[in-house]
Protein backbone atom coordinates (compact mmCIF):
# COMPACT_ATOMS: atom_id res chain seq x y z
CA UNK A 1 0.00 0.00 0.00
CA UNK A 2 2.68 2.46 0.94
CA UNK A 3 4.61 1.27 -2.06
CA UNK A 4 1.70 2.28 -4.24
CA UNK A 5 1.41 5.63 -2.50
CA UNK A 6 5.07 6.42 -2.80
CA UNK A 7 5.14 5.42 -6.43
CA UNK A 8 2.14 7.60 -7.27
CA UNK A 9 3.46 10.64 -5.41
CA UNK A 10 6.83 10.25 -7.08
CA UNK A 11 5.09 9.98 -10.40
CA UNK A 12 3.29 13.25 -9.78
CA UNK A 13 6.49 15.03 -8.82
CA UNK A 14 8.23 13.82 -11.95
CA UNK A 15 5.37 14.88 -14.17
CA UNK A 16 5.25 18.30 -12.49
CA UNK A 17 8.89 18.84 -13.24
CA UNK A 18 8.41 17.72 -16.79
CA UNK A 19 5.46 20.09 -17.11
CA UNK A 20 7.32 23.07 -15.71
CA UNK A 21 10.30 22.40 -17.93
CA UNK A 22 8.15 21.87 -20.97
CA UNK A 23 6.11 25.02 -20.35
CA UNK A 24 9.20 27.09 -19.68
CA UNK A 25 10.98 25.95 -22.82
CA UNK A 26 7.93 26.38 -24.97
CA UNK A 27 7.31 29.89 -23.71
CA UNK A 28 10.86 30.91 -24.44
CA UNK A 29 10.86 29.35 -27.86
CA UNK A 30 7.62 31.06 -28.70
CA UNK A 31 7.63 33.79 -31.36
CA UNK A 32 5.98 36.16 -28.91
CA UNK A 33 8.81 37.36 -26.75
CA UNK A 34 8.59 39.48 -23.58
CA UNK A 35 10.68 42.07 -25.30
CA UNK A 36 7.61 42.93 -27.37
CA UNK A 37 6.19 44.61 -24.32
CA UNK A 38 8.67 47.43 -24.47
CA UNK A 39 7.68 50.89 -25.55
CA UNK A 40 8.54 51.65 -29.15
CA UNK A 41 11.13 54.24 -28.27
CA UNK A 42 13.01 51.76 -26.14
CA UNK A 43 12.86 48.96 -28.65
CA UNK A 44 14.23 51.27 -31.33
CA UNK A 45 17.35 52.13 -29.40
CA UNK A 46 19.71 49.14 -29.19
CA UNK A 47 21.43 50.47 -26.07
CA UNK A 48 18.20 50.96 -24.13
CA UNK A 49 16.88 47.65 -25.38
CA UNK A 50 19.97 45.84 -24.16
CA UNK A 51 19.68 47.61 -20.82
CA UNK A 52 16.10 46.47 -20.33
CA UNK A 53 16.88 42.95 -21.46
CA UNK A 54 19.66 42.83 -18.92
CA UNK A 55 17.32 44.09 -16.22
CA UNK A 56 14.76 41.43 -17.08
CA UNK A 57 17.46 38.80 -17.11
CA UNK A 58 16.75 37.79 -20.67
CA UNK A 59 20.34 37.93 -21.81
CA UNK A 60 21.49 35.06 -19.63
CA UNK A 61 21.79 31.52 -20.94
CA UNK A 62 18.52 29.64 -21.00
CA UNK A 63 19.63 27.06 -18.46
CA UNK A 64 20.43 29.74 -15.91
CA UNK A 65 17.06 31.36 -16.45
CA UNK A 66 15.36 28.00 -16.07
CA UNK A 67 17.17 27.07 -12.88
CA UNK A 68 16.45 30.48 -11.46
CA UNK A 69 12.81 30.11 -12.31
CA UNK A 70 12.50 26.68 -10.75
CA UNK A 71 14.43 27.77 -7.68
CA UNK A 72 12.20 30.78 -7.23
CA UNK A 73 9.08 28.78 -7.88
CA UNK A 74 9.97 26.29 -5.19
CA UNK A 75 10.22 29.19 -2.80
CA UNK A 76 6.87 30.49 -3.96
CA UNK A 77 8.10 33.31 -6.15
CA UNK A 78 6.74 33.13 -9.67
CA UNK A 79 8.10 36.42 -10.86
CA UNK A 80 6.18 39.56 -11.66
CA UNK A 81 3.52 40.12 -14.26
CA UNK A 82 4.77 41.81 -17.39
CA UNK A 83 1.56 43.71 -17.71
CA UNK A 84 1.31 45.56 -14.41
CA UNK A 85 4.34 44.49 -12.40
CA UNK A 86 2.41 42.86 -9.57
CA UNK A 87 3.76 39.59 -8.18
CA UNK A 88 2.41 36.58 -10.01
CA UNK A 89 2.17 34.52 -6.84
CA UNK A 90 -0.09 37.15 -5.28
CA UNK A 91 -2.45 37.14 -8.23
CA UNK A 92 -2.56 33.37 -8.33
CA UNK A 93 -3.04 33.22 -4.57
CA UNK A 94 -6.03 35.49 -4.88
CA UNK A 95 -7.54 33.79 -7.90
CA UNK A 96 -7.07 30.14 -6.97
CA UNK A 97 -9.43 29.96 -3.96
CA UNK A 98 -12.17 31.56 -6.04
CA UNK A 99 -11.84 28.96 -8.77
CA UNK A 100 -11.69 26.16 -6.24
CA UNK A 101 -14.83 27.47 -4.60
CA UNK A 102 -16.56 27.63 -7.97
CA UNK A 103 -15.41 24.11 -8.79
CA UNK A 104 -16.59 22.83 -5.46
CA UNK A 105 -20.02 24.39 -5.86
CA UNK A 106 -20.25 22.98 -9.37
CA UNK A 107 -19.28 19.53 -8.10
CA UNK A 108 -22.00 19.67 -5.50
CA UNK A 109 -24.52 20.77 -8.11
CA UNK A 110 -23.39 17.92 -10.32
CA UNK A 111 -23.05 15.07 -7.85
CA UNK A 112 -26.35 15.38 -6.06
CA UNK A 113 -28.69 15.36 -9.05
CA UNK A 114 -26.46 12.82 -10.80
CA UNK A 115 -26.69 10.37 -7.92
CA UNK A 116 -30.40 10.92 -7.57
CA UNK A 117 -31.20 10.60 -11.24
CA UNK A 118 -28.74 7.78 -11.80
CA UNK A 119 -30.18 5.75 -8.97
CA UNK A 120 -33.74 6.52 -9.97
CA UNK A 121 -33.22 5.48 -13.58
CA UNK A 122 -31.72 2.22 -12.46
CA UNK A 123 -34.62 1.59 -10.13
CA UNK A 124 -37.21 2.37 -12.75
CA UNK A 125 -35.42 0.91 -15.70
CA UNK A 126 -36.99 1.63 -19.04
CA UNK A 127 -39.40 4.13 -17.58
CA UNK A 128 -39.93 7.73 -18.49
CA UNK A 129 -37.29 8.87 -16.07
CA UNK A 130 -34.76 6.50 -17.51
CA UNK A 131 -35.24 7.73 -21.05
CA UNK A 132 -35.61 11.29 -19.87
CA UNK A 133 -32.33 11.05 -18.03
CA UNK A 134 -30.56 9.76 -21.08
CA UNK A 135 -31.88 12.60 -23.18
CA UNK A 136 -31.10 15.12 -20.49
CA UNK A 137 -27.55 13.93 -20.05
CA UNK A 138 -26.75 13.92 -23.75
CA UNK A 139 -28.24 17.38 -24.09
CA UNK A 140 -26.36 18.65 -21.06
CA UNK A 141 -23.15 17.36 -22.57
CA UNK A 142 -23.81 19.07 -25.85
CA UNK A 143 -24.68 22.55 -24.67
CA UNK A 144 -21.54 24.67 -24.64
CA UNK A 145 -21.13 26.45 -21.33
CA UNK A 146 -20.07 29.70 -22.90
CA UNK A 147 -23.24 29.92 -24.94
CA UNK A 148 -25.50 29.06 -22.03
CA UNK A 149 -23.63 31.51 -19.89
CA UNK A 150 -24.17 34.36 -22.33
CA UNK A 151 -27.87 33.62 -22.49
CA UNK A 152 -28.25 33.02 -18.78
CA UNK A 153 -26.41 36.23 -18.01
CA UNK A 154 -28.86 38.42 -19.79
CA UNK A 155 -32.03 36.46 -19.10
CA UNK A 156 -31.30 36.47 -15.42
CA UNK A 157 -29.44 39.75 -15.28
CA UNK A 158 -32.51 41.84 -15.85
CA UNK A 159 -34.81 40.07 -13.43
CA UNK A 160 -32.37 39.12 -10.68
CA UNK A 161 -29.66 41.75 -10.54
CA UNK A 162 -28.04 40.27 -7.47
CA UNK A 163 -26.82 37.24 -9.33
CA UNK A 164 -24.27 39.34 -11.16
CA UNK A 165 -20.93 40.72 -9.97
CA UNK A 166 -21.24 43.65 -7.61
CA UNK A 167 -19.68 47.08 -7.85
CA UNK A 168 -16.68 47.29 -5.59
CA UNK A 169 -15.17 44.20 -7.08
CA UNK A 170 -15.77 40.55 -6.55
CA UNK A 171 -16.66 39.74 -2.95
CA UNK A 172 -14.85 36.70 -1.62
CA UNK A 173 -16.39 34.13 0.66
CA UNK A 174 -14.49 35.34 3.68
CA UNK A 175 -15.73 38.89 3.21
CA UNK A 176 -19.42 38.28 2.69
CA UNK A 177 -20.56 34.69 2.28
CA UNK A 178 -24.12 35.49 1.28
CA UNK A 179 -23.26 37.84 -1.58
CA UNK A 180 -20.41 35.62 -2.67
CA UNK A 181 -22.61 32.57 -2.96
CA UNK A 182 -25.35 34.47 -4.71
CA UNK A 183 -22.96 35.52 -7.42
CA UNK A 184 -21.48 32.05 -7.85
CA UNK A 185 -24.77 30.12 -8.08
CA UNK A 186 -25.44 30.77 -11.74
CA UNK A 187 -21.90 30.08 -12.97
CA UNK A 188 -21.73 26.94 -10.85
CA UNK A 189 -24.92 25.59 -12.37
CA UNK A 190 -23.73 26.21 -15.92
CA UNK A 191 -20.36 24.70 -15.12
CA UNK A 192 -21.95 21.67 -13.47
CA UNK A 193 -23.99 20.67 -16.48
CA UNK A 194 -21.50 18.57 -18.39
CA UNK A 195 -20.07 17.03 -15.26
CA UNK A 196 -23.59 16.15 -14.19
CA UNK A 197 -24.22 14.50 -17.53
CA UNK A 198 -21.12 12.36 -17.42
CA UNK A 199 -21.60 11.42 -13.82
CA UNK A 200 -25.20 10.41 -14.39
CA UNK A 201 -24.29 8.11 -17.21
CA UNK A 202 -21.30 6.67 -15.44
CA UNK A 203 -23.26 6.02 -12.30
CA UNK A 204 -26.17 4.63 -14.20
CA UNK A 205 -23.96 2.31 -16.15
CA UNK A 206 -22.02 1.27 -13.11
CA UNK A 207 -25.10 0.79 -11.03
CA UNK A 208 -26.83 -1.21 -13.73
CA UNK A 209 -23.86 -3.49 -14.04
CA UNK A 210 -23.54 -3.81 -10.31
CA UNK A 211 -27.21 -4.58 -10.01
CA UNK A 212 -26.75 -7.30 -12.57
CA UNK A 213 -23.94 -8.90 -10.68
CA UNK A 214 -24.02 -12.06 -8.64
CA UNK A 215 -23.95 -10.59 -5.19
CA UNK A 216 -26.81 -8.23 -5.84
CA UNK A 217 -28.90 -11.06 -7.18
CA UNK A 218 -28.10 -12.97 -4.08
CA UNK A 219 -29.11 -10.06 -1.89
CA UNK A 220 -32.37 -9.68 -3.75
CA UNK A 221 -32.98 -13.35 -3.50
CA UNK A 222 -32.52 -13.04 0.23
CA UNK A 223 -35.38 -10.56 0.27
CA UNK A 224 -33.73 -7.18 0.06
CA UNK A 225 -35.64 -4.48 -1.75
CA UNK A 226 -34.17 -2.96 -4.88
CA UNK A 227 -33.55 0.29 -3.14
CA UNK A 228 -31.79 -1.29 -0.20
CA UNK A 229 -29.54 -3.42 -2.32
CA UNK A 230 -28.85 -0.38 -4.39
CA UNK A 231 -27.72 1.58 -1.42
CA UNK A 232 -25.76 -1.10 0.31
CA UNK A 233 -24.25 -3.13 -2.42
CA UNK A 234 -24.45 -1.67 -5.86
CA UNK A 235 -23.35 1.82 -5.01
CA UNK A 236 -20.04 0.52 -3.82
CA UNK A 237 -19.49 -1.35 -7.03
CA UNK A 238 -20.49 1.63 -9.10
CA UNK A 239 -17.95 3.83 -7.42
CA UNK A 240 -15.02 2.18 -9.13
CA UNK A 241 -15.89 3.11 -12.70
CA UNK A 242 -16.97 6.53 -11.50
CA UNK A 243 -13.66 7.15 -9.82
CA UNK A 244 -11.97 6.21 -13.02
CA UNK A 245 -13.76 8.86 -14.96
CA UNK A 246 -13.28 11.25 -12.06
CA UNK A 247 -9.92 12.26 -13.44
CA UNK A 248 -11.56 13.30 -16.65
CA UNK A 249 -14.34 15.07 -14.79
CA UNK A 250 -11.86 17.09 -12.80
CA UNK A 251 -10.09 18.05 -15.98
CA UNK A 252 -13.40 19.03 -17.43
CA UNK A 253 -14.26 21.21 -14.46
CA UNK A 254 -10.91 22.94 -14.58
CA UNK A 255 -11.20 23.56 -18.28
CA UNK A 256 -14.76 24.69 -17.94
CA UNK A 257 -13.92 27.31 -15.37
CA UNK A 258 -11.79 29.10 -17.96
CA UNK A 259 -14.74 29.85 -20.20
CA UNK A 260 -17.38 30.28 -17.52
CA UNK A 261 -15.24 32.68 -15.51
CA UNK A 262 -14.65 34.71 -18.62
CA UNK A 263 -18.34 35.22 -19.30
CA UNK A 264 -19.38 35.82 -15.72
CA UNK A 265 -16.37 38.00 -14.96
CA UNK A 266 -15.28 35.94 -11.99
CA UNK A 267 -11.65 36.69 -11.12
CA UNK A 268 -10.52 33.09 -10.85
CA UNK A 269 -7.48 31.32 -12.19
CA UNK A 270 -9.14 30.58 -15.52
CA UNK A 271 -9.82 34.25 -16.13
CA UNK A 272 -6.26 35.03 -15.08
CA UNK A 273 -4.89 32.56 -17.57
CA UNK A 274 -7.00 33.85 -20.43
CA UNK A 275 -6.08 37.48 -19.87
CA UNK A 276 -2.45 36.52 -19.48
CA UNK A 277 -2.48 34.80 -22.85
CA UNK A 278 -4.43 37.56 -24.51
CA UNK A 279 -1.88 40.09 -23.31
CA UNK A 280 1.07 37.80 -23.87
CA UNK A 281 2.05 38.20 -20.25
CA UNK A 282 4.61 35.40 -19.98
CA UNK A 283 5.29 35.02 -16.28
CA UNK A 284 1.63 35.17 -15.37
CA UNK A 285 0.62 32.70 -18.08
CA UNK A 286 3.32 30.28 -17.04
CA UNK A 287 2.50 30.62 -13.36
CA UNK A 288 -1.19 30.10 -13.92
CA UNK A 289 -0.58 27.03 -16.09
CA UNK A 290 1.77 25.54 -13.52
CA UNK A 291 -0.76 26.15 -10.77
CA UNK A 292 -3.57 24.58 -12.80
CA UNK A 293 -1.42 21.62 -13.68
CA UNK A 294 -0.48 21.12 -10.04
CA UNK A 295 -4.11 21.17 -8.95
CA UNK A 296 -5.07 18.78 -11.70
CA UNK A 297 -2.32 16.30 -10.88
CA UNK A 298 -2.98 16.59 -7.17
CA UNK A 299 -6.68 15.91 -7.53
CA UNK A 300 -5.94 12.93 -9.75
CA UNK A 301 -3.54 11.70 -7.11
CA UNK A 302 -6.25 11.98 -4.48
CA UNK A 303 -8.57 9.95 -6.67
CA UNK A 304 -5.85 7.37 -7.16
CA UNK A 305 -5.37 7.15 -3.44
CA UNK A 306 -9.09 6.71 -2.89
CA UNK A 307 -9.02 3.68 -5.15
CA UNK A 308 -7.64 1.21 -2.62
CA UNK A 309 -10.34 2.25 -0.21
CA UNK A 310 -13.05 1.47 -2.69
CA UNK A 311 -11.51 -1.44 -4.52
CA UNK A 312 -9.37 -3.69 -2.37
CA UNK A 313 -7.70 -5.21 -5.38
CA UNK A 314 -5.80 -2.00 -5.80
CA UNK A 315 -4.48 -2.24 -2.30
CA UNK A 316 -2.96 -5.50 -3.33
CA UNK A 317 -0.81 -3.65 -5.79
CA UNK A 318 -3.01 -3.58 -8.81
CA UNK A 319 -3.08 -0.03 -10.14
CA UNK A 320 -5.77 1.53 -12.24
CA UNK A 321 -3.63 0.93 -15.28
CA UNK A 322 -3.08 -2.70 -14.62
CA UNK A 323 -6.69 -3.45 -13.92
CA UNK A 324 -7.24 -3.78 -17.60
CA UNK A 325 -4.65 -6.49 -17.82
CA UNK A 326 -5.75 -8.56 -14.83
CA UNK A 327 -7.81 -11.49 -15.92
Amino acid sequence: MTNYLVRRVLGVVVVMFAVVTGLFLLLHASPVSPVNQLAPQVAADPVARAAVEHRMGLDRPLVTQYLDYVGDALRGDFGTSLYDGSPVADQIGRALPISLELGLLASVFAVIPATALGAWSVLRRGGVVDHGTRVLSVLAMSLPGYWLAVIALVVVGDSHPDLLPNAGGFVTFTEDPATNLKVLVLPAIVLALATFAMLTRSLRGGLADAMASDHVLFARAMGGSRLLTLRRVALRGALVPTLTVAGVLIGGLLSGTVLIENVFQIPGIGQLMVTAFQRQDYPLALGACVATSAIFLLLNLVVDLLYPLVDPRTAAGVTRDKLGRAA
Binding site: R125, G145, M198, D214, T244, V245, S255, L259, D321
Partner: peptide, 28 residues
Protein backbone atom coordinates in the same frame (compact mmCIF):
# COMPACT_ATOMS: atom_id res chain seq x y z
CA UNK B 1 -32.99 -6.98 -17.54
CA UNK B 2 -31.48 -7.71 -14.16
CA UNK B 3 -32.30 -11.39 -14.48
CA UNK B 4 -30.09 -11.89 -17.47
CA UNK B 5 -26.55 -12.60 -16.43
CA UNK B 6 -24.00 -12.60 -19.20
CA UNK B 7 -22.07 -15.88 -19.25
CA UNK B 8 -18.79 -14.10 -19.61
CA UNK B 9 -19.30 -12.18 -16.39
CA UNK B 10 -16.48 -13.77 -14.45
CA UNK B 11 -13.98 -13.02 -17.17
CA UNK B 12 -15.46 -9.75 -18.30
CA UNK B 13 -15.68 -7.88 -15.04
CA UNK B 14 -11.97 -7.26 -14.60
CA UNK B 15 -11.57 -6.39 -18.23
CA UNK B 16 -14.64 -4.22 -18.23
CA UNK B 17 -13.38 -1.93 -15.56
CA UNK B 18 -12.15 0.93 -17.63
CA UNK B 19 -8.47 1.52 -17.73
CA UNK B 20 -7.11 5.01 -17.71
CA UNK B 21 -8.72 5.61 -21.06
CA UNK B 22 -10.31 8.97 -20.66
CA UNK B 23 -13.90 9.23 -21.66
CA UNK B 24 -14.83 11.88 -24.15
CA UNK B 25 -16.29 14.72 -22.18
CA UNK B 26 -13.10 16.02 -20.74
CA UNK B 27 -13.77 19.58 -21.67
CA UNK B 28 -16.66 21.54 -20.29
Amino acid sequence: TPEEIPEETPRQIPAQIPTQIPTPKETQ
